[in-house]
Design a protein around this nucleic acid. Structure first.
Length: 209
DNA sequence: AACTCGGGGCA
DNA sequence: TGCCCAGAGTT
């Protein structure tokens, strides 16, 4: 495993490679962001991006969702898989938003994680990307990149990775680190055939614990 | 801790 | 065309 200093350096190099990537794109408000991230669970978000164009035309607000039903949501998200669950989560989540939070997306972890279909990863994305609150969302891309580059042990859980990254990075870097690492994981450090070797700068720091 | 939900992408 | 990918909830 890399030392903390070395791990921080590798992450800063990944940020330098992709300094301004926005992996969560084209969402106009935190309602759209929340739903889009929620729908992304176990799915490629390219598929989610396509589906959400028409989805948000039909359901522009939480209120508009509560006036419909899960069955009315399903046709819009059939292409993304697990769609019955997700239609149900989206409906219940919007009911909660309207009933408990005046139709606004809450800005703290406890309330976010109380919403249907919202777990720790989704909550962290909303906090960091939606509200600019220091938080670090660990999905399988982040997990793979961190393990492949020996930043964390191979057996580390998402929560352990989250806590470790927060302990080695300054808070103001967390959101961009998340987005840059995801971009790197999606496009270069693939699950199969990772091409990280083409990025020798990532290996400059070889200091291990 | 194991199981379930379901499609798209790629070899 | 069969294998692999990607989180949250439930039991």
């Amino acid at each position: 495993m890399l030392t903390k200093e070395c791990a921080r350096q590798v992450i800063e190099e990944i940020i330098a490679l992709y300094p301004n990537v926005e992996t969560v794109l084209n969402y106009r408000n935190n309602y759209e962001l929340l739903i889009a991230v929620m729908l992304s669970a176990q799915t490629t978000d390219i598929a989610v991006n396509k589906a959400t164009v028409k989805l948000f035309e039909r359901f522009p607000t939480p209120e508009s969702v509560t006036h419909a039903s899960p069955a009315e949501i399903e046709p819009y998200i059939q292409s993304i898989g697990l769609y019955r669950n997700k239609a149900k989560y989206m409906f219940q989540c919007c009911q909660q938003l309207v009933e408990k939070y005046s139709g606004e997306v809450p800005n703290n972890r406890k309330d976010l994680e109380s919403l249907a279909g919202v777990g720790r990863k989704t909550a962290n994305v909303i906090l960091s990307v939606g509200f600019g609150i220091p938080a670090f969302a660990v999905d399988t891309h982040v997990s793979r990149v961190c393990k492949h580059h020996d930043i964390v042990p191979a057996k580390a859980t998402p929560r352990q990775i989250e806590d470790y990254i927060i302990s080695i990075l300054p808070p103001e870097l967390l959101t961009q680190a998340h987005q840059s690492i995801i971009f790197f994981g999606r496009n270069i450090c693939h699950p199969r055939n990772p091409q990280c070797e083409n990025y020798p700068q990532l290996y400059c720091c070889q200091e291990h614990i």
